[in-house]
Structure formats: C-alpha cells, structure tokens
Design a protein around this nucleic acid. Structure first.
Lengths: 233, 233
DNA sequence: CGGCTTAGTCAATGACATTCACTAAAGTGA
DNA sequence: TCACTTTAGTGAATGTCATTGACTAAGCCG
C-alpha cells in the first residue's frame, strides 16, 4: 500500500477534472494531516479534504473506504514522523529517552491528529517498526522473552498515554482559543473550606509544565528499570 | 446548578408532551452516561437523548447550550462517581493508591464517556474535590507549597493519562467488536527481518494486562515519592 | 484500434446539531 | 381566585456531514 504509483500525470494542484493518477494514499494522508494541524480537531471533513487536494470530496473514497480508515492512516504517518531518522544509541537508556522525546514532540506538533490516533492500533509498518525499536533497546539492556515484553509494555504505555493526553489537552485548548477566560485562575469553587488544599495553593496549581512532568516520569521509570536490570552475562 | 428543583411533577418516563419540571441537568447527564455506556462512542446524539428521556430532542437545549456542554457535565459526573464514598487512609500511599484505582475502575466501567472527557477541565465541583483529595494525601506525606503541587501534578497526570488511554482503547475495541479479526495475531508485517524483535516475540506481544501495567507504574511512582520524602518535622 | 477497468465526478440520501417561533404549564402578585 | 409573566417542551426548518450509486472518460491490454 505504501508503494508509490507510476506517477504518470501528477499535475500538482488542478482545480477541475483531475487526471487519473492524481490522488494517492500518501497525498491524501498528507492533506489530512495538514488540515488537522491547521485548526479544530473536527475540521477533517471530506469537503475540506477535497478542497485541499483540488479534487471532488468523494474522490477520496477511491483510496480509503471511510473517514475512519483515513484517521488510521494518519496514525501510522504520525508514527513514521516520530521515528524518522531515529538512530539507536549505544546506551539503552538514551535510546528509550530519545524515543520518548520523539513521541512527545511529534504528538505536540500535531495535537489534533495525535488525539484522534494515539490510542489506536494501526497495524501499519511504522507502528511495528516503533515497537521493534523499543524492544531492541530493552534487549540491549539485557532483558529477553516475557520480561522484555513486560518492560516494552510499561514503557510504551507510559509514553503513549502521556504524550497522547498532552496532545488531547493541547488540541482542546486550541479549539476553544478565544472563548471564556482560560481555566488558569478560575479554579475557585463555591466553598473554600470544603477544599482547603486547593484554596491554599490556588496560585501555584495552575502552573503546569506538562513536558517537565513527562520527563520526570520517564526518568522515574528508567531509574526503576535500571535497578531491576538482570545480572550481566 | 446542582441543586435539585422542586420536583413538582416528575412523572417518570412519559412519551408525549412532558410537563414543565420533567427535565433536569441531573436527569440529562444520567441519560447521557447511560447512552454512552450502552454502545458506540458516537452514540450520544440529541435524538437518542430525547428518546432516552421520553422528550423532544430539542428539549435538552433548555438545560445545556450545546452537545459539548453535556459532555463536560458527564466528565464531572464521572469524577463524582470515582470519588464517591472515598475515605482517606491514615497511610498516604494507601490514599493515593485508592484514588488511582478508583479513577481506573470508573473509567473502565464507562469507557466511551471517559474517552471523551478524561482530558477536559470541567471546573466542576467534583473535579476540584478530587484535586483536593490528592493534595490532602500529598500534604499528609509531608510536602507543602510548590513541592506538593509538583507531586500532585505528577500523580494526577500519570493516573489520568493511563486510565483515560485505557478507556479510549476499551471504547475503540467495543466499537469495532465484530469486525475483522482482533489485532492479536495479525501483528506480522511484510518483512520479518526488518523487525527481528517483534518477530521473535510475536506470541508474547499480544498479551497485555493493561491494569497490571497501570498498577506497576503507580507503584513505581509511589516508591520514588517515598524515597524523596522530606525530612520529618 | 476496440474494449475493459477504474479514478474522479455528480447528485441524492439520511443522520446530525442547532435555531426559532409557538404554546401552555408553573409561578407571582393582588 | 385570577390575570400576567416566565420559560420548558415542541415541531419545523436549516445547513453540515459521511456515505452511496450511477456516470464518464482516462489509461491499460490485447
């Protein structure tokens, strides 16, 4: 599915009556990602996609059976972007840290796309490559078999969940940019005495650096993994 | 907004022409949660809501300005359910563990609702109560001020992200129950040599107990917190 | 060169959120 | 008890959306 077609007549962005090989899965996925990036999380429609591609909205159905399937393709594209140029380090912790940062950054750069995809299984080639990259680092550390799988699952669950949640929050706040006041200060409820700690810390609570929390948690996990390391052979 | 109305004429589930006080925010939120629980994540529509309430679909607009606002109310309801009957323990670790389990369980019981809400800020009373409960445990452990906030953020980020991601995955797999084969075995790509570790572990990879991974990560965090504990006064 | 496959197009359908004018039920004040 | 006001529930209308099916012509195969 990823093989590029003959590309016989790829006249860039026509407006009426496209030629035969004008649309490809890659082109469509790229357009979808661009649309998701530019604004609201709900902005990905067939109409918008058609405009972006200079084609009829329904033309896309020749390449994808449903909106759903486009989203899944975007998911794999996101993974591809994340592990593009990735090179494993000699130090397994650095490899995992690098992979974690890549996931976080890619998701943060494409929040709307990430929030719709991070919890999905794409079965795509890049997803499997990413799994393999993590497993490679885990093996490098010294784990094998079931133990390796356990550490892979813990690491990837943590990284995906935190990066995806961050993307979802980013996307949600971009969506309502320009509405009521930000939740920053309004964290104050009716009766302060029922929530004494929140009231006392009202000025400190709103300031969250989610990236720092993420990095902290990744380091916590890496430390724990290091302490669990199997005896060297 | 949470104050129950006079409840003058709450004739349960009529079918035509409801009386005046028949609908309340609570009734609507309950119906919305029921609808989300029964099936697809996209099943929450005004039409469906009207049917569930035995009212006109548009009647709901008298209590909520938009679909979005209903979802936010459901979010706060979910938090309410999660911390219902919560009692802090004498041991701060037990309190945090309990809160973590409650979030996980509630989200797992209402996957569709959770996946649409876990990344949102409701500003509702229950959200604030939950924050306060976590902060109470953190203070009990001995942290105050900015340090307390940091530990609160780390804990809640971890728990919400993991519980929410789990809900999203649960909801997604419920949605496509009865489609193609589960992703269990098909994790095998084109060229096995490009992904040696995945190929070697193909039989172990599919078996994930996400709850166990969650509990593991919570314990890892609690251990790290314990090690960072401030000196006793 | 004639026919076949199929990508892109066009029009139609049905589900959906949201708006608006309407009506009457509940509350209010005397 | 009776006008009077407010507003919750209704029904019809609008515009957006995903998806489908029939149609047409572009490229391919012989």
């Amino acid at each position: 599915m990823v093989v590029a077609p003959k590309a016989t007549a790829r006249r860039a962005g026509q407006h009426r009556g496209l030629n035969r090989g004008s649309l490809t899965r890659e082109l469509i996925v790229g357009a979808a990602l661009r649309i998701l990036d530019e604004g609201t999380a709900a902005g990905l429609t067939f109409a918008r996609l058609g405009k972006e591609l200079g084609a009829s909205p329904t033309a896309v159905y020749r390449h994808f059976p449903s909106r759903e399937s486009i989203v899944i393709a975007v998911a794999d594209e996101l993974i591809r972007l994340a592990i593009e140029d990735y090179e494993p380090s000699d130090v397994w912790e650095d490899s995992l840290r690098d992979l974690a940062e890549r996931a976080w950054n890619t998701f943060a750069q494409h929040p709307a796309a990430a929030m719709h995809t991070f919890y999905r299984v794409t079965r795509g080639p890049h997803e499997i490559a990413a799994v393999d990259a993590i497993l490679a680092a885990v093996h490098q550390a010294g784990w094998t078999g079931r133990e390796a799988v356990l550490h892979y699952q813990t690491f990837s669950t943590l990284v995906l969940a935190l990066s995806g949640s961050n993307a979802a929050r980013l996307s949600a706040s971009l969506d309502r940019a320009g509405e009521g006041p930000e939740w920053m200060q309004e964290y104050l409820p009716a009766d302060p005495s029922r929530v004494p700690y929140v009231s006392a810390l009202r000025d400190d609570l709103p300031q969250t650096d989610r990236r720092r929390v993420f990095q902290r948690l990744v380091e916590v996990l890496l430390d724990t993994m290091r302490a669990d390391l199997p005896a060297k052979s």
